[in-house]
């Protein structure tokens, strides 16, 4: 049975979001990482890039497929996980910690509350 952390909020497209102050950290779920199989490349924006809620912020590539990455909140990219450039497999091994992708300084933190709680994410993604 697939599971995901309860303290995070989700998009149906498998991105998780963690809120700390007005900063939202984004990555993809273990379910998505398993579906993609071995991740070989993560294309992330530069610090300072604006992102919009439900807008594409990057791309993830695995041995099997390429997928777009979406942000659930609007704001500006304040940090990028540089480790993924050399070690994209971190997303497979540790998607909720070492495999995080970007931090967004949220312009309207209220958007976080509108994202899917874990049970709805699991239901909507068919798990």
């Amino acid at each position: 049975m697939a599971d995901a952390p309860k303290d995070l909020r989700y998009l149906q497209t498998h991105e998780w979001h963690r809120l700390e102050g007005d900063t939202v950290t984004i990555g993809i779920t273990q379910i998505a990482a398993d579906e993609l199989t071995d991740i070989t490349f993560v294309d992330l924006p530069k610090v300072g890039t604006p992102v919009t809620a439900n807008g594409r912020f990057g791309e993830i590539e695995s041995v099997k497929a390429t997928s777009d990455l979406y942000s659930g909140v609007s704001g500006t990219v304040s940090a990028v996980n540089a480790d993924l450039a050399n070690e994209p497999g971190l997303v497979n091994r540790d998607p909720y910690k070492g495999g995080w992708m970007i931090k967004v300084k949220a312009s309207s933190p209220g958007e976080f509350e509108k994202l899917l709680p874990v049970d709805e994410y699991l239901k909507k993604s068919g798990h």
Partner: peptide, 8 residues
């Protein structure tokens, strides 16, 4: 079977 443990 497409994968058991990981493709790599």
């Amino acid at each position: 079977p497409i994968v058991y443990r990981g493709i790599i």
